[in-house]
Nucleic acid binder design. Structure first.
Lengths: 229, 229
DNA sequence: CCAAAAGTGTTAAAACTACACCCATGA
DNA sequence: TCATGGGTGTAGTTTTAACACTTTTGG
């Protein structure tokens, strides 16, 4: 890496795959592009990286500007660096995926996005650029990661019944899980702690609410232990 | 992502962490920098991304120019995008890790590298930029990945005795493994196939040579099965 | 009292761990 | 014949997978 840089530089952007789970299934947020190229087509939220901000900061900023979301779980996915990704100019894009709990949040349209909306993962329209590839890779990563890292909690409110957590696993992994085995496994981890609260306003027996204790989890991983399933 | 791009662009580079295993332990390749900043200090091989090449192509080119290595296993690790990584200018770097089988290969110095050399992972000198952080992350990733993807083979010649594979696992994971359990596990995967060849010129009973069958592995993963340990 | 989901144990099969000896080969 | 690593099996333990009923609550 020289401090001289005689070559023309690629543009650098971010794209963010925002996931959420609702009562039905796994959702992704898309925006309808307000400008060319691909004007009026659906795309992932994202934007260019400025010279004075980190790439991650750029992703957070784009997310806020285009969807109104902030302070969400954001993790780097992959950098897409092919030459012809963008028909108008050379753009390298650092993709992130975000996990939000959809209950209580919503999204607003912003600067160069006319519209933002949630789509079922199984019902995504045609996307601009190589965003379909980014989405697919992101989804696979989410599935893999869910199985060995405690990230399912990021798709839920702070306090949740175990059923909701199981629902997250079921819709992300796209298969049914056994209730008893699931509870046994999750409760064997002492970083999933029960609160003394219960669900409210349900038309059946109210479930106990649980919470993910990040501090306990961190201590636990330091012992070399691994979260799984 | 707009086709207009009124902002100043960060420079885009790649850095590559090249791993190899020899009889003793896990090695990383470093180059001594020929130019400022950090002239004469040790650093990861790498270089800038040109406007007309993909990021991955840039990594391969840098690798060849600086170390003489080509056609090696190369996988994207992470993109380092902090503002102050490089004291002289804003540089975002896409890091890769490479796995090579050191037997039979060597490396040459190149354009802006005065010198390239292997270092034991436990004996790495001070590094330029944030390369120590890149190296650490890369090493952790290698350890994780080795446990659930068949990449150990990339550190060996095409045909190898099982002992050599076990050695790869032991030096990368930094712990001893039981020989019988290891063989049992590995041979339970039908994509590790025995050739009818044996070691030559050894001062003891010659071991049978095995080979990783990528096609069989691909078929096998399509059934949803997972390689582990 | 009905509907809906909460909560709870056991058993069989599979996977994992720990462990030690004889064999083949070349020097 | 000796030194070196190749190659092999078993038993105890742990983990996983499959499976169904009773309890609580609100409507």
């Amino acid at each position: 890496m020289s401090h001289q840089y005689p070559y023309q530089r690629p543009a650098l952007a971010t794209d963010i795959v925002v996931f959420a789970v609702d009562a039905a299934d796994l959702k992704v947020m898309l925006i309808r592009r307000g400008i060319a190229p691909f004007e009026n087509e659906w795309a992932l939220p994202g934007g260019f990286v400025r010279i004075d901000e980190s790439v991650e900061a750029a992703a957070n900023r784009a997310l806020k500007e285009e969807t109104g979301l902030r302070d969400v779980f954001l993790e780097q996915l992959f950098t897409f660096g092919d030459v012809d990704r963008d028909p108008s100019t050379r753009v390298v894009s650092v993709a992130y995926f975000a996990l939000v709990n959809v209950a209580g949040r919503w999204c607003a349209a912003g600067t160069d996005a006319k519209q933002a909306a949630w789509f079922s993962i199984s019902d995504v329209p045609q996307l601009a650029f190589d965003h379909r590839i980014i989405l697919d890779k992101s989804y696979r990563r989410l599935q893999d990661k869910l199985r060995y890292q405690p990230i399912g909690f990021e798709l839920l409110p702070e306090k949740f019944p175990l059923r909701a957590l199981q629902h997250v696993y079921e819709v992300v992994l796209d298969r049914r899980l056994d209730k008893r085995n699931f509870r046994k496994k999750i409760l064997s981890y002492d970083f999933v702690v029960s609160t003394d609260e219960a669900e409210q306003n349900v038309a059946h027996r109210a479930a106990q609410l649980f919470r993910f204790d990040k501090k306990k989890y961190d201590r636990w991983t330091k012992k070399g232990l691994n979260f799984e399933l």
